[in-house]
């Protein structure tokens, strides 16, 4: 197999798009070809790191801050989640 074809197969392998039979064949080939093996392992790891990235935290505060920004921009939005405390009118405590 030439390098160009290897590259295409490794691209598909890294993205889990290579059919099982071809994957087995490619893995088998990688035991005989260290450059191919390195290409496969490093590219697969790169994709794995991206796919398992947890992303930015989206907390209730984030949700409410964005909601506040929408209100500020003049949007009328009603959510099923309770309104943030600072938007609720507080009654004086009796006692």
């Amino acid at each position: 197999m030439n390098n160009n074809l290897y590259n295409k197969l490794v691209d598909l392998y890294a993205g889990d798009e290579l059919p099982e039979e071809l994957t087995e064949e490619l893995v088998g080939e990688s035991f005989k070809n260290t450059d191919l093996r390195h290409d496969m392992v490093s590219l697969k790891e790169t994709v794995n790191i991206l796919r398992t990235d947890p992303g930015a935290e989206f907390t209730d505060e984030t949700f409410n801050r964005i909601l506040m920004r929408m209100y500020t921009k003049g949007l009328e939005v009603k959510t099923r989640t309770p309104e943030p405390d600072h938007l609720q009118l507080k009654l004086p405590l009796s006692g």
Binding site: F58, V77, K78, T79, R80, T81
Partner: peptide, 11 residues
């Protein structure tokens, strides 16, 4: 409806 769409897609 906008609130519901925000709840679905906001994050």
């Amino acid at each position: 409806a906008l609130g519901a769409i925000y709840e679905i897609y906001g994050e």
